[in-house]
Each structure stands twice: as C-alpha cells, then as structure tokens.
C-alpha cells in the first residue's frame, strides 16, 4: 500500500518535470532577464542598478502620448467588441444547428488566419484606391479617393475584426451553459423580448462578457502587427515603440523598461480578474 501511494506520487512528478523545466528555461527565465534588463545600465559601465530607463519613459511626453493612444484605442476596441459581440453571441446560441456552425465558421476562419494576412486585407480595403474608396465612389458618397490608412479610425476598424472572435467565443461559451428555459420563464411571466434580454440574458452572461472584455483589452494593448501596418510610424502604440527600441535604436534597457510597463498594465488587469473568477489558485 505504502509503496503504491509513493509510486503514484512519483508518477505525476516524472510527467510534469520535462514541461516545467522547459517553461522555467524558455519562459520564466527570459521574462526575468527582461525585468533585470530594465533596471540595469547599458554601455561601458553595464550592469549597474539604475532607474534611468523608467525615468526616461515617464519624463518623455512622447511616450506618455503613445501610452495614452494605446489605452484609448484599446478601450474603444473593447467597447465596440462588446456591443457587436454580445448580440452576435446571442444570435449564434439560438440559431438552428446548420446556421450555428456556419456562423461559428465565419468567426473561427478569420481567427485561424494569420494576423499579418488579415491586416493585409485591411490595407487593401482602407488604402488609397482601395475597396472602401471604390464602394463609396460607386455609391456616389464621395468624389475623390478616400483613405483611412494612418488614421486611428482605420486602426480601430481593423483591430475590431481581428479581436471580435475572442469576445464572441468567450461569451458564447457562457451562453451555452445557460438554460433557455430561464428566459422562457421571463417571457411567460409577461416580460417583453428586450426586458427578458436585459434582466435575464445579460446578467447571466456577465461573466462571459467580462472575460471577453479583459481578453480583448489585454490583447489590444499589446498588439503590434495591425496598429503598426495600418497606423504607420506616425501613430505609434506601445508595442511598436518597443519594437523600435529593440530593433532600430538598439536601446535595450529602455525597450525592456517599456515592456515591463506593458507587462504591468496587463497583470494589473488580468490578476484581479483571474482571482475573482477563481482560475488562479482555486479551482482550475
């Protein structure tokens, strides 16, 4: 008996060790080095402790502007994803089986396509002489060509398409667990269609909407490809500034400090949410 229980304890240890070892070396150690890099000097007297990179990030009004733009865009994107994603998820959850699989395909197919390619599509749509311009001209709405490239509106339009699937799928997962008879009960008791959505469906799907919103916001503040291709160099966001520091200016200390600030913003958002939903520590 004793030997059996010991061997069953040893077995998960054997199974977990390779993956854990890999994550420590390839994930936790690099993240730790990034943290370290952000408080160390670079150059001839490298390796001294310093806060100069953070001072630079906070003193330079340019980066305050970049951070402000990133957060503002992320908020707007999250809000639009909520407004579109919630009704869409409700419709999908009530559709007939065939329609439901078609709609899920419509959400999953773009999601599984590379972000670079989806953004490329948006460049062709939003750019000079692009699809949007052509359609608006054909409808007689504009005279010359229009372009939403290098505008914040263009970034938001493209980013919502990129991130909407996350919102819809998280909300849908939540709606699927909800019993349709609850809403039916509300309707039978005399609530109108919108009242039953407002008083029954919305509160019941609040956890799904909240996790979708947290996910979309977190993905949005760290996104790089879409804002840098649609927005260009004149509308930098945090991720493109970090990229610039790491690959263009080679100021690794400063790039690391900006990354740690982005990491901090993500954790401030994620950790309370994970604790609240009991995904960290508690139930798994």
């Amino acid at each position: 008996m004793a030997s059996a229980s010991r061997s069953t304890n040893r077995e998960p240890a054997f199974l977990l060790t390779p993956g854990l070892f890999f994550l420590i070396i390839a994930f936790f150690f690099p993240t730790f080095l990034l943290l370290a890099q952000s408080v160390l000097t670079v150059g001839p007297d490298a390796g001294e402790l310093t806060l100069e990179h953070y001072q630079k990030a906070f003193a330079d009004s340019f980066y305050a502007g970049v951070a402000f733009r990133t957060l503002r865009l992320a908020l707007l994107i999250t809000l639009i994803c909520l407004l579109i994603g919630f009704p869409l998820a409700i419709i999908i959850s009530r559709a007939s089986r065939i329609v439901r699989s078609l709609l899920i395909l419509m959400i999953v197919l773009p999601l599984m396509t590379s972000v670079v390619i989806r953004t490329f599509g948006w460049l062709v749509i939003l750019g000079q002489g692009g699809v949007l311009s052509w359609v608006l001209q054909a409808l007689g709405l504009v005279d010359g060509t229009v372009s939403l490239m290098r505008t914040e509106a263009g970034i938001v339009i493209a980013m919502v398409q990129v991130l909407l699937p996350f919102m819809v799928l998280t909300t849908l997962g939540n709606l699927n667990q909800m019993s349709p008879s609850l809403e039916e009960a509300a309707r039978v008791m005399g609530a109108g269609f919108f009242r039953s959505i407002w008083h029954v469906t919305l509160p019941m799907s609040a956890p799904g909407l909240a996790s979708g919103a947290v996910l979309v916001f977190a993905l949005s503040i760290s996104s790089f490809i879409t804002p840098s291709l649609v927005g260009g160099v004149r509308l930098p966001v945090i991720a493109s500034s970090i990229y610039q520091q790491m690959t263009g200016s080679f100021d690794w200390g400063f790039g690391a400090a900006l990354s740690v600030l982005l990491l901090g913003a993500t954790l401030v958002l994620m950790v309370p949410y994970l604790i609240a939903t009991g995904r960290l520590g508690g139930r798994s």
Binding site: L16, G19, L20, L23, A26, F27, F29, P30, T31, F32, L33, L34, Q37, A218, L219, I221, S222, F224, A239, I242, Y243, M246, W252, G255, A256, S259, L262, L263, T266, M270, L274, R279, L280, G281, S284
Partner: peptide, 23 residues
C-alpha cells in the same frame, strides 16, 4: 502548477520574445 502551465497565454507574447532575444 496548472496555472503555471497556462501562464504563457496570459502575458503578451512579445514580452517573453524579447526576453528570449536577450537570452
């Protein structure tokens, strides 16, 4: 441990990519 194994999904991937670049 389960949280540890899923944690790479929580952090922006560019963060540890830079970390790996430094390593």
């Amino acid at each position: 441990l389960s949280a540890i194994f899923l944690s790479p999904l929580l952090l922006p991937s560019l963060i540890f990519a830079i970390g790996l670049l430094i390593v």
